[in-house]
Nucleic acid binder design. Structure first.
Lengths: 336, 336
DNA sequence: CTGAAAGCGCTTACAG
DNA sequence: CTGAAAGCGCTTACAG
């Protein structure tokens, strides 16, 4: 079962390899190949069930029709959903996707960028971790197309697609307030990343506008902490501030830990405390009671990111920076 | 920022490209290159921060150091966890992984196999869907290394790594029986796939051994049904058979639907009914009460699959078929 | 309307 | 101990 190449087709169809290449790339007509020859080549290609060798084509053209997707953790549902939409959308445009998880580790992230660069991906979609800023600077300097998703570095001239995190948190906090909560706490991760800061600002500003802000009701846990450490920290925080009657979790894994903390402490939602989390998750839908969330518009974000990247990749080097912000969806459930 | 090639190094180090290639592939010594030259080449390569072009190397050698991983759905936690371990293990061995989701669609699966074949992956790890049998036959005929994971086709001579599904279901059913259940139902998906059949057999045989088997307590739903359809079917089934006091779900998504059905009907676990599901999931840990599960040994399975594949890929064409079966882990929680 | 030839960046017999 | 050269399978100016 030898590999069929263009040479085999050329031989059998009694034309040159160039002609075969033109026909198979659908530029036969443009190159003035006669219809008869075009049809013959097509027929022979089919008979031999020819499959183009993308490696050879990539070497020659310098393009791989592939996209590198760098995310934090593929086993986090938010990223898995994101990856799936990116994959589907890319396939539709005849691109392949390489996924990689950084695990929040800056060094690993940098290695991944290099390794994808070495694989000659045509462009990157990146949900960056903190230490990735200079790697991305490098990509930009090398004129490699990049689109950031979910997060970005303020001040860096790179295209991005994000949710309006400030507004999402602002409105979620307002929901809690409107439902009667007056001691609304927030749980955030200790992170310099802009999307987390904006979420916290949304929370903070809404409360300040109503004179309800209390700095001691802000808890930061470390991303690197184990799940049980996070749960313990949240539980301790809740024990310390028993007046808390509303709680906003700024990411899905924080919310998941929080639910376990409530359970340990026997706190009932929404009787004792009203709860909203960022990012939707099966467990929030399924929880008793179900948990209201600020869901990211994952499908729209992923599609937009792919489209922006592809247009960067195909439109030559004039890098048009585009920063897109999409509205989140508030999903009302039983927890408020 | 021009791409640095071996030619650039050769020029600067004043040696031939062959010499550069030998040194950079760590066979300099074997080829009898002098230590002085080796060091010079290494130094120059570092100075120019040379990165090998894997595309060119692949074209020449016919190897891509990449693995195609075909699974059902990356947004299912079981597969996401599996993919992550496969990726890590492959990276350790200096291989790259392409993930693809079939969505349970046979045609899509076949396209994916072809597309990965065209990308010249060196081998496949596949969690096959029903219609994939002949595609896999083809791979075997073409001497492409393949390892099946999670499922396999009985009678097909292909290496595989699976859990002992029969025993897992047998022991889970026994747990239910030992805890006092006498009307133990099972929810399975309508699938000809061996792993699902074996699970059902484990359930069936344990009950038959104790004279407790009742065919009417076996429910099959369609994989293609929407989530809400599955929930409805399970709820209807529960209403019809109110005597059910134990329930075994044969996959995680069935279990998740089941939890929602219980909720709709106001059924309390484990007071009204004892529950065990296959495959662990965040939601099972977090559910109130937490749900006991038969967890697959994901890490061990994934590592074993990668190791087997790599040894197939490197050991030439003598395809040693190896069929590995690993024990599942019963995770006891509050639902029984 | 079509073909011969160079070249993408490597690897690897072959020669000396 | 090292180099010249062929070749992997394509694409694409160039020539006629």
């Amino acid at each position: 079962m030898k590999k069929i190449t263009m040479k085999d087709i050329a031989l059998k169809a009694d034309v040159s390899v160039s002609t075969v290449s033109f026909v198979l790339n659908n530029i036969g007509e443009k190159m003035g190949i006669s219809t008869a020859v075009i049809n013959k080549v097509l027929l022979v290609a089919q008979e031999l069930s020819y499959k183009p060798n993308m490696i050879a084509s990539s070497l020659r053209t310098g393009e791989t029709r592939s996209i590198g997707l760098i995310i934090e953790d593929i086993s986090n549902q938010f990223f898995a959903d994101l990856a799936k939409v990116v994959e589907d959308e890319a396939r539709r445009l005849n691109y392949r996707v390489f996924y990689c998880s950084t695990g929040g580790d800056g060094q690993r992230a940098e290695e991944l960028v290099n390794s994808l660069l070495q694989a000659n991906v045509d462009g990157f979609i990146i949900a960056p971790t903190e230490k990735l800023e200079k790697s991305i600077d490098n990509l930009v300097k090398m004129h490699v197309p990049v689109v950031m998703i979910d997060r970005y570095f303020p001040g860096q001239s790179v295209s991005s697609v994000v949710m309006d995190n400030y507004e999402g948190a602002y409105l979620a906090t307002k929901k809690l307030m409107d439902s009667g909560c007056r001691n609304i706490a927030v749980v955030n991760v200790n992170s310099g990343m802009i999307q987390m800061k904006l979420r916290e600002s949304g929370y903070e500003n809404l409360l300040k506008e109503h004179g309800l802000y209390d700095e001691s009701l802000v808890l930061h846990v470390d991303f690197q902490d184990s799940e049980s450490d996070k749960i313990t920290k949240i539980a301790d925080f809740l024990k310390l501030h028993s007046k808390i009657d509303g709680l906003l979790f700024l990411s899905n894994y924080l919310g998941l830990c929080g639910l376990q903390a409530f359970r340990q402490l026997g706190i009932e939602i929404p009787r004792n405390i009203s709860v909203i989390s960022f990012d939707d998750h099966d467990s929030f839908r399924l929880h008793t009671p179900s948990i209201s969330v600020v869901a990211q518009p994952i499908v729209a974000m992923a599609k937009k990111a792919v489209d922006m990247l592809v247009s960067q990749m195909t439109s030559g080097k004039q890098a048009v920076i585009e920063n897109v912000m999409l509205k989140g969806d508030f999903v009302e459930r039983e927890s408020v």
